[in-house]
Design a protein around this nucleic acid. Structure first.
Lengths: 339, 339
DNA sequence: CTGAAAGCGCTTACAG
DNA sequence: CTGAAAGCGCTTACAG
C-alpha cells in the first residue's frame, strides 16, 4: 500500500516512464488507462517503470483533452451552520468513494455565488451542487447544461437536461410544525425567518400560512420577522417580536440556529419556554437536543440530502442528456420540550 | 456587473477572440494577463471581443504551463465538527478574497489522508493546509516543499522551506483547565480523550498530567479514556469512567463534543453537573454556552486559525524558499457553569 | 500489439 | 508594439 515518501512530485512525466520502459508514450498511456490491447509483458515493464519513478499522471494535462477533471463544486450558504456541514459530509463521503474531489464555496449572496460559479467554470469542474441564493435562476441555467450538470437543492425550476433537483419537503414540515402549535392551543403564532434562499423561505412561510388559515387564523405579515439565519438574529428577533406583538405565545423559526437564538433571547427577557413562549425550530441539527429546553423541531436528513444530490450529479455525468425527476426528501416533526 | 447569462461555456477559446479582434493569440494573452506593452487601441479591440464572446481563459491550460492552478487543499478531520467548520470558514473567507479555490477533504485516518494528499497532487494544487492524523510525517514532508507548500496545524516538526506551522497552545490550555479544577478542590480527575491527531492528544494529556503532578496528584493512565472525538463517545466514556473509577469528581475532555456527550451521559446516569461530576471541554464551540449547564471550556479562536494558516500558506506561495516561524494561537479558559 | 502525428488552450522565450 | 514557433503533459484518431 505504501509507496515511497521521498517527495511527492509531478516532475516525472509520461515521457520519462516511456524512456525508462523502452516504449512509446502512447503505450504508457495505454497501461495507465487500462485500455488493454497490450502484451502482458510490456504492461509489466511499464508498470515497473511507473512504480520505480513514482509516476503519477497529471490530471490537468489529461483534463485538457478529455474535458473531465474529476472535480465537482459544492456551493452552500454557510459551512459554519451544522446543517450545511452535515450536507457537506454526505457529499464528501460519496465523492471520496467515487474518486472525485470537491471545491467548497461559501456563497451567501448572489454576488459571491456568481463569482464562485464562474470560478468553478474556469477550473473546468465536471458539475456542481448548489443551494441557490435569490435572483439567480438565469445564472444557474447558464451553468447547468448537459456538458456541465448542476444539481440544485430547493429551487423552483423545471428539470431539464443538465439540471437536477433535490427538494426537501419544507412546506410540509413547516405545516406539521405550526399545526402542532395550533393543536396545543396556540393561536397567536409568530415566525422568525431567514432570508438567504428564496424557496427555503417561501416554502416555510407557505406552510406556516396554510396551517394558520386552515384553522381560521389570519396570517399577519408583521408577525414574520426577516433576517440572516444565524443565532444572533434569533436572539434579536425574539425581542422585537415580543415587543411589537405581545399577544404571541409561540414562534416558528426558519431554522434551528434562529430557534436557539430565540431560546437565549427568551432567557434574557425572563420568558419561560414553553410556558410563556413556545419555540419550534427547523432542520434538527445535532445540538437541538442538548439545549434547554430541548428543542422541538422539524427533522431533515441532511446527510442524505448530500448523498442523494451527489448520487444524482454523478448519474447525470454518466447520462447527461436524460431528464431526471426531482428527488424528494421528507421532513418530520420531532417533539421535544420547547413546545 | 452582470454579464450575459446564455450559457457559461468554455467553448470559446483565445483563438476565437484573436480572430474576432483581428490580432494574434499572443496579443489576446497580453491583454488577459495585463502584461502591458500594447496599444490602448488594440487593447480595447481585444477587450470588446472578449466581452462579446464572453471569453473566459481556461485555468487548466494556463496551469499546464505556469504551474499554478490557483487552488489549495484543506484537509481536516471532520467537517461536521463545528470546530473544523469554523476553521474552514476562516480559510474560505481569505481564499475567496485572494481568488483561490479550495478543495475540501475529510481525512480522519492516515489512509484517507494519504489518498487525499495524492489526489491533490494530481490536481496540481498550489499548496495545502492540513490537520494531520497520526503516523504520517513522512508523507507530509513529501508533500510540503518549496514548489508545493504545506501548512500543518498542530504537529511536531521542524519548520523547513515548504513547511509552515500553526500551533494552538493546547498544553497550556489543558493545564489552565485542570488547574482550575484542582483550585476548586478536585483531586480525582479523569480525562476523556480523542484519538485522531497525535499532537492534539499528546499536548492535552501533557497539560493534564503536568497540572496534576505540580499539585502532587499522581497521574493514573487508567483514568484517561481514548476514543473518537465525537458526542457519542463522550456519552459512552463517562459511563465507563464513573463505573471503573468511582472516586472521580471531575472530567477534563479532549474537545467540546466529548464534553457535551459526557453531559448527556451524566444526565442519563442521574449525576448532577457540576455537583456530582464537574465537566470541562475544549475548543469553545458556539453551542457550549447553550447546553445545560453551560460548559466551562478552553477557548480557541478557530476562525483565526483558518485565517492565519491561509495567510501563511499564501505568503509561502510568494516566497517559497524562506523558513517561516511557527504561528502560535492562544488558548484561554472560559469559566461557565459545568465546573 | 505498438507508434508517430496532431491537438487540447494556453504561455514562454525569441524575433521583427 | 506585435507575431510565429515551441512546448506544458497528456489523449485521440490513424497507420503499420
Amino acid at each position: 500500500m505504501l509507496i515511497g515518501c521521498e517527495e511527492i512530485a509531478l516532475s516525472v512525466t509520461m515521457r520519462d516512464v516511456a524512456k525508462a520502459a523502452g516504449v512509446s508514450i502512447k503505450t504508457v498511456s495505454r497501461v495507465v488507462n487500462e485500455q488493454g490491447e497490450i502484451t502482458e509483458e510490456t504492461r509489466q515493464r511499464v508498470l515497473k517503470a511507473i512504480e520505480k519513478l513514482e509516476y503519477r499522471p497529471s490530471k490537468l494535462a489529461r483534463a485538457l483533452v478529455t474535458r473531465r477533471t474529476d472535480t465537482i463544486g459544492l456551493l452552500i450558504g454557510d459551512i459554519d451552520n451544522p446543517y450545511f456541514a452535515e450536507v457537506a459530509l454526505g457529499v464528501l463521503d460519496v465523492t471520496q468513494e467515487q474518486e472525485y474531489d470537491v471545491f467548497l464555496c461559501n456563497t451567501d449572496t448572489p454576488v459571491t455565488e456568481k463569482r464562485a460559479l464562474f470560478s468553478l467554470v474556469d477550473h473546468h469542474v465536471d458539475g456542481a451542487i448548489i443551494y441557490p441564493t435569490y435572483n439567480n435562476l438565469p445564472w444557474l441555467k447558464g451553468f447547468g447544461n448537459p456538458t456541465r450538470p448542476l444539481v440544485i437543492v430547493n429551487a423552483l425550476i423545471d428539470p431539464v437536461p443538465g439540471i437536477g433537483l433535490v427538494l426537501s419537503k419544507i412546506a410540509d414540515g413547516a405545516k406539521q410544525a405550526v399545526n402542532y402549535l395550533i393543536k396545543n392551543g396556540h393561536t397567536e403564532i409568530g415566525m422568525i425567518a431567514g432570508e438567504v434562499a428564496p424557496l427555503d423561505l417561501i416554502n416555510r412561510v407557505t406552510g406556516y400560512r396554510q396551517a394558520l388559515e386552515e384553522h381560521g387564523i389570519p396570517f399577519r405579515e408583521q408577525r414574520v420577522i426577516l433576517g440572516p439565519p444565524i443565532i444572533q438574529h434569533g436572539f434579536d428577533a425574539i425581542k422585537v417580536l415580543v415587543e411589537q406583538e405581545p399577544q404571541i405565545t409561540a414562534v416558528f423559526c426558519y431554522n434551528d440556529l434562529l430557534a436557539m437564538g430565540a431560546l437565549q433571547g427568551c432567557k434574557a427577557l425572563g420568558l419561560r419556554v414553553p410556558e410563556d413562549c413556545a419555540i419550534i425550530g427547523f432542520d434538527n441539527i445535532r445540538y437541538t437536543e442538548m439545549v434547554t429546553p430541548p428543542l422541538t423541531t422539524v427533522h431533515v436528513d441532511k446527510y442524505e440530502i448530500g448523498v442523494q444530490a451527489t448520487g444524482l450529479l454523478l448519474d447525470m455525468l454518466e447520462e447527461p442528456q436524460r431528464v431526471y425527476p426531482p428527488i424528494y426528501i421528507d421532513a418530520e416533526l420531532v417533539i421535544r420540550e420547547s413546545t
